[in-house]
Write a protein that binds this DNA or RNA. Structure first.
Lengths: 260, 260
DNA sequence: CTTTAAAAGTTGTAAGACAACCTACATCTG
DNA sequence: CAGATGTAGGTTGTCTTACAACTTTTAAAG
């Protein structure tokens, strides 16, 4: 329709470009692109909680895709718990509040998650280092032991308050070849993006933790943390990042939207 | 096709039965029923991790539904992270291990979750009480203040080890009318099921906790807990249960499958 | 043996038709 | 008038058919 939502088709034609062989495709499916577009509009607050979305026919006309594709995208949103579709009535924004905007079930960078909470994110790098993978890391990332990895230690700040300490490990192969320690700042996802690596799934183990060995700088050793141990995978289920993040209890609550 | 998968159609015809008005439908959609059937088969381990599922055409023939419906169900599984579908190749079981069998993102009773971990669940009721809702409870459950609720305190055991303390509140209206305190045991989901209430979504807030006020009986006051505060909703997004569960750190780790 | 081409199998998208469901309004009935 | 009933229009649910796009296998050509 108008210029607003042409990204869907822009991608479609752009995919004819010579593709890097053996690499995970950016994402070919129309329905996935459409779902992402709608998800963005939802998270931008284009529709209120409980409000009805455009009908399938309207979306079909607006995006210039078939109703089948629109239905696929809408069903994806419903499966994620973002919308509720009722036979004969329409599709509505589900009323689960911020869980749909910043729920743990949706894989997003911490930067984005903090923004979704309405705060300003910042990353303070404590250390950045290329080194050989430890045995544990090699196992988690399905690498040969000793493979070079980038190891980072960062403090995550929201509105200039430290909300988490985070430790990440990424195989050096999955980063731009000319990268040096000095170039590492901001979002790690952005770096991997440049090398064509797109995390699409993650498994997170949740537990509680406390103790002086967590983090650095001025802090209370009695502090409780939510300990998130994650492994991120790309579209081909290949592990690409291992991370461990300690969220400062009380400063950054997060939610999970659970669906049947 | 054999009798094995006829449940899908059994439901279809059974839905002609006189429906209780104003009640959330059990689940009308064919695609949802099919997805549940496939999910059950996945969790029963019918296909190994990485293994290819039957093709869309095969499933269509096996279940006697159209390929569109099969696709809808498969896309639902993919959105949940249970499978990966590749253009021109097929649909495969995703290799994310136990996260797909007992991940927090899927709403299941604690009983089921413990079983999915390969352990035997048990509930020890510490107190069961009908009383008026507190202000906080009334707000969380969208009730008039003072509405009668069932309040329970339970210890959750896996293989006879206490893994969590749990506090639940359910509006009395949503339970069988003739229910008395003595009748409350085992799964609360089972009780609500009898009254036609089916939780379909939940929002869970995750944090860490510690202190002597958590739980009862013999225990170390230094113990760390993962604190899960949940509100469960039925298919019409009406809140039906409020709960707060403290998982004993180290005794019951849980995971979240995050999807983009 | 290597390269290229064709074929077969699988998922992705489109279009059209009709069923099932919901709401609102009009109409009938007592 | 009040309540039940019918009807029309809008929306989602399912099915059918067709073809495009992608992957692997097979066959043919060099």
């Amino acid at each position: 329709m108008t210029s607003k939502h042409d990204a869907v088709h822009a991608h479609k034609t752009a995919n004819r470009a010579p593709k890097p062989p053996g690499r995970a495709l950016r994402t070919a499916n129309l329905r996935v692109q459409l779902a992402e577009s709608l998800r963005d509009r939802l998270q931008m607050g284009e529709w209120q909680e409980g409000e009805q979305l455009p009908t399938e026919a309207e979306l079909s006309a607006e995006y210039g895709v078939s109703r089948s594709t629109v239905r696929s995208a809408l069903q994806q949103l419903e499966t994620l718990g973002l919308t509720i579709t009722r036979h004969g009535m329409g599709t509505f924004v589900s009323p689960y509040g911020h869980a749909i905007k910043a729920g743990l079930q949706e894989l997003r960078s911490m930067t984005d998650t903090i923004r979704a909470h309405g705060m300003t994110p910042k990353m303070d790098y404590h250390s950045v280092e290329f080194r050989a993978a430890t045995e544990q890391e090699a196992a988690a990332l399905a690498l040969a032991e000793g493979t070079r990895v980038l190891a980072t230690e960062r403090a995550v700040l929201a509105d200039d308050v430290t909300v988490a300490f985070s430790y990440e490990t990424i195989p050096a192969d999955y980063l731009p070849t000319d990268l040096s320690e000095k170039d590492v700042h901001g979002s790690l996802f952005a770096l991997m993006d440049k090398a064509g690596i797109v995390p699409s799934t993650a498994v997170a183990e949740v537990s509680a933790a406390s103790g002086p060995e967590i983090g650095w700088g001025d802090r209370d050793p009695e502090t409780l943390y939510v300990d998130l141990r994650q492994i991120h995978y790309d579209g081909n289920a290949r592990p690409v990042v291992q991370s461990r993040t300690y969220f400062h209890q009380g400063r950054f609550e997060f939610s999970v939207l659970r669906v049947r």
